[in-house]
Structure formats: C-alpha cells, structure tokens
Amino acid sequence: MSLGSYCFRKSLWVFHFGGASCNNCDIEILDCLTSRYDIERFGMQLVGTIRHADVLLVSGSINRKCRARLLKVYNQAPKPILVVAFGACGCTGGIFAEGNVFGGPVDTIIPVDAYIPGCPPKPEAILAGIVKLLNK
C-alpha cells in the first residue's frame, strides 16, 4: 500500500479555498454538508485551517492578488494532500479567464489531482468526484 492510499483510507477532511469566486460553488459545497446530501456520513468535514486537511478544494477563478495566497496555503498544507479544482472557474478560469486581473487557472499554480467541472457542479457531482478521486 502506498503512502497516499494509506493516508486517504479514512475520513477525509476538506479545506475550502475560495478564490475570486461567485459564491455559487461555495454554496453548493455547504449544501453537501446539510441534511439532504449529508456528506458527513462519509466522514467528510470542512475544517477551518489547511493544517488539519487532507483535501484542498479550490473554487473560483484565481486573480493576481489571491494567486500568492493560494501558493502560501498549499505550502502550509501537510503532504500528501489532494487538490481538487472545483467548478468551471477552478478548472479553467471559466468566464473570467479573459479578465484583466486573471492570475491563471489553478493547475498552473499548484498540482491538481481532480477536476469537478460545472457552473456550479451539483452536489451529486461533488460526491461522484470525490468517490472517483478515492478510487484512483
């Protein structure tokens, strides 16, 4: 068993980094936590600091100002860490990629393990994405 699969065998704790996002992805992530989708039954939980997390969830396009902060957060993370680019903006920059302050898609800044596309992805898509990531 490799170190990676050993680390991610049990409950995943997720840290959510919102770049310059429009909020929709953030809401759908929170939606996953509440009663209908209840992601906590899989042991997943949002945590307040990256130092406790197994997964770094990045939503929203990244502008120049938060680019440096994203790198900082990634460097603070305990390795190994799974990075998930969330939503159309997280994957490619989406509609804001042509803006004058766009700092680059997430995968040009930090290595990304999984992409969950959609604007915003439905909670079901989030669950499916995480399951796929775990079975990788």
């Binding site: 502008n63 120049r64 100002k65 440096a68 004058n100 302050v101």
Partner: peptide, 11 residues
C-alpha cells in the same frame, strides 16, 4: 487594486 495591478496603471 492591491496586488492586482500597479499603482501607476489604470486599466
């Protein structure tokens, strides 16, 4: 603007 663009720049 902050770190988004330089102070002398006016986009």
């Amino acid at each position: 603007s902050g770190e988004n663009w330089e102070e002398t720049e006016h986009p």
